[in-house]
C-alpha cells in the first residue's frame, strides 16, 4: 500500500502529468465554451420566421421547376433536347415535397441536449484517452530512461509487483481526473442546452444511454492509458510508445487504408482501428459498400452494409490490452536491467 501511495505521489508530482492534464482539461473547456457561443436558444418568433423562409424556399423551388419543365418541353418540341441537359420525360422535373424543406435549415444553431449530447462524449473520451496515453507512456518511460526504475527495484525487488502497482497508481490518477471531468462535461453541456438550446424530451432511458456511453468513454480512456504505459515499459522509453503509435497510425492505418482502397476491398474501414473505437462509443458503426450496386440519382438501390458493434470492439480492445500488457509484464520479469 505504501508503494501505491508513493507512486500516486510520484505521478502527481511530475510536471509532465500536471501540464498534460491541464492542457487536456483546457481543450475540453474550450469545446464547451465554443459550443456555448456558437449556439443560441430559439424562440417562437424565430421559429415562425424560419417556417416562413421554408415556405418561401418551397415557392422558389416550385417556380424554378415550372420554368425548367417549360424549357424542357420547349427544347423537346424544338428538337434541341439531346444535349443531355433535360431528361427524356419532362414531367419528372418536379419540386421537392414541402416537408423536405425543413424550417430548421433557416434557424441558427441550437443545442438540443437529447439529440446532440451523445456525440460530444466522443471528443471527450478521445481527448482524455490521448492525455492518458501520453501520461502513461511518460510515467513509466521516464522512470526507465532516468534510472528511477532501477533505484526502485533496489528497494522493492519484486518486479511484477512494482510494475503493476505503478499501473494501478496511474489508472487511479487518470480515473481521478476523468470522473470529475465527466461530471463537469455533463453539467457543462446541460448548462449549454439550458441557455443555448433545449433540454426537452429527456427520459430516464436517454439518461441511461448517456451514462452507458460515458462509462464506455471512461473505459476507453483507461484502456489507452494502459496501452501507452505497457508500450513504454516494453521499450523502456517513452518514445517507444509514442513512436509505436505514430508508426501504427501512419503505416498501419493511413497506408493500409490507401492500400485497401486501391484494391477495392469491401468494407475497407473494417480493417481500421478508428472504426472500432467509434463503434465502441456509438454502439454501432454501419459500413456501406457503394460498389455493391449502381446507385443512381433516381434509383432506389441501397448499398450493402456491415455493422461493427461495440461488442466486437470490446473483444479487440481486450485482446490488445492483454497482448501488449502481457508482453510488458513478461519483459519486466525476464529481461536484465542494465
Amino acid at each position: 500500500m505504501s508503494l501505491f501511495r508513493t507512486e500516486l505521489r510520484r505521478l502527481s508530482k511530475r510536471r509532465f502529468t500536471r501540464y498534460m492534464t491541464l492542457l487536456g482539461l483546457l481543450v475540453l473547456a474550450a469545446v464547451v465554451v465554443g459550443v456555448f457561443f456558437t449556439n443560441q436558444k430559439i424562440d417562437a418568433g424565430q421559429l415562425a420566421q424560419a417556417e416562413r423562409q421554408a415556405d418561401q424556399q418551397y415557392q422558389e423551388q416550385m417556380r424554378w421547376s415550372e420554368q425548367e419543365r417549360a424549357a424542357c418541353e420547349q427544347a423537346k418540341t424544338a428538337g434541341t433536347a439531346t444535349d443531355g441537359r433535360y431528361p427524356d420525360d419532362c414531367s419528372v422535373i418536379t419540386p421537392p415535397p414541402r416537408e423536405e424543406i425543413k424550417a430548421e435549415w433557416f434557424l441558427p444553431s441550437t443545442f438540443d441536449f437529447k439529440e446532440t449530447f451523445a456525440e460530444t462524449l466522443i471528443p471527450f473520451a478521445a481527448i482524455l484517452a490521448l492525455v492518458g496515453f501520453v501520461i502513461g507512456a511518460s510515467f513509466v518511460g521516464a522512470e526507465w530512461s532516468t534510472g528511477g526504475m532501477m533505484n526502485l527495484l533496489l528497494w522493492r525487488p519484486k518486479r511484477l509487483t512494482v510494475l503493476l502497482t505503478k499501473l494501478a497508481a496511474l489508472l487511479t490518477g487518470i480515473l481521478a481526473v476523468t470522473l470529475p471531468a465527466a461530471v463537469l462535461w455533463f453539467a457543462g453541456f446541460w448548462a449549454v442546452a439550458n441557455f443555448r438550446g433545449s433540454t426537452e424530451k429527456m427520459t430516464s432511458g436517454t439518461w441511461q444511454s448517456f451514462m452507458l456511453t460515458g462509462v464506455r468513454g471512461v473505459v476507453l480512456v483507461l484502456v489507452l492509458t494502459t496501452i501507452g504505459f505497457a508500450l513504454a515499459s516494453l521499450g523502456r522509453h517513452t518514445a517507444m510508445a509514442l513512436g509505436g503509435v505514430v508508426a501504427v497510425m501512419v503505416v498501419g492505418q493511413f497506408g493500409l487504408g490507401i492500400l485497401l482502397s486501391m484494391a477495392s476491398v469491401r468494407f475497407a474501414e473494417a480493417w481500421l482501428l478508428p472504426t472500432y473505437v467509434l463503434a465502441w462509443m456509438t454502439k454501432t458503426v454501419t459500413l456501406q459498400d457503394w460498389n455493391s450496386c449502381n446507385a443512381t440519382y433516381y434509383g432506389e438501390c441501397k448499398p450493402a452494409t456491415m455493422d461493427i458493434t461495440w461488442q466486437q470492439s470490446s473483444i479487440l480492445l481486450s485482446v490488445g490490452v492483454v497482448v501488449i500488457l502481457g508482453a510488458a509484464l513478461w519483459a519486466m520479469r525476464r529481461r536484465d536491467i542494465s
Binding site: S2, L3, T6, R9, R10, K13, W155, R156
Partner: peptide, 12 residues
C-alpha cells in the same frame, strides 16, 4: 528531498 522522500515512502 522529493527523490529521497519518494524512496522512503516506497521502502516504508
Amino acid at each position: 528531498r522529493d527523490t529521497l522522500s519518494l524512496l522512503a515512502g516506497a521502502g516504508e
